[in-house]
Computed example of a mutant assay.
Amino acid sequence: MRLRFVSRYWLATLLLAPSLLMGYEWMFGKFVGQVMSYLEILPVILVFSFILSLPTLLLCYLTLFVLLKKQVHQRIARLTLIGLTVGGVVLTMQSLGGSLGVALMSAYSAAAILSGAFLSMRTAHTTSPATSSSSQ
């Protein structure tokens, strides 16, 4: 398990959530043109997502650092980080409020769960066959 996992997990969550939100609005939205308006404000969404997620990112790094020191199993570490991220999303959205709060909270929580489930937490370096055969 590496600290780089947190960076990849964070970026995957930030990039996946707006897509999930647009997909949800496309399927279940009240207004057909709603998806186009989301595409127009996508850069703004990404900038604010980046800024608002920094405290949760820092907390994830610190938590993973502690979990690595304690040599916690990867599955437990992954579940801990996912739970921490979903909790950070909920706290952030509750503090902001607004008409899109529930939709954004759902999209970012789903993105955090999906990103955490599909990204790998590698533990060791693997050697390529070319490297191992040339060393003999």
Rank of each mutant, 00 (worst) to 15 (best):
L3I: 11
L3Y: 08
L3C: 06
R4A: 13
V6W: 03
Y9W: 12
Y9R: 10
Y9A: 04
W10P: 00
L16R: 04
A17Y: 04
P18R: 05
P18F: 04
S19N: 10
L20E: 06
G23T: 04
G23Y: 00
Y24I: 04
M27D: 04
F28W: 10
G29Y: 09
G29R: 08
Q34V: 05
Q34D: 13
V35H: 07
Y38R: 10
L39P: 02
E40I: 11
I41P: 01
P43N: 04
P43T: 09
V44E: 03
L46H: 14
F48G: 05
S49D: 12
I51Q: 03
L52G: 13
P55D: 08
P55T: 09
T56V: 15
L57D: 00
L57I: 02
L59Q: 02
C60I: 00
C60Y: 01
L62V: 07
T63G: 03
F65S: 12
F65V: 01
V66Y: 14
L68E: 15
K69V: 09
K70S: 06
Q71W: 04
H73C: 00
Q74D: 11
R75S: 09
R75P: 01
I76S: 09
R78K: 15
L81Q: 07
G83K: 07
G83W: 02
G87H: 11
G87K: 06
G88S: 06
G88V: 02
G88R: 03
V90I: 15
V90F: 10
L91W: 13
L91E: 03
L91Y: 08
T92G: 08
T92A: 13
Q94W: 12
Q94E: 07
L96V: 14
S99E: 10
L100G: 05
L100W: 15
V102F: 11
A103H: 11
A103F: 12
L104F: 15
M105L: 12
S106E: 01
A107T: 05
Y108W: 13
Y108A: 07
A110F: 11
A110N: 00
A111G: 04
A112F: 01
I113P: 00
L114W: 00
S115G: 08
S115D: 02
G116M: 07
A117F: 03
A117N: 03
T123R: 02
T123D: 12
T123A: 11
A124G: 07
H125L: 12
T126V: 15
S128L: 15
S128H: 14
T131H: 06
S134G: 11
Q136S: 12
Q136A: 13
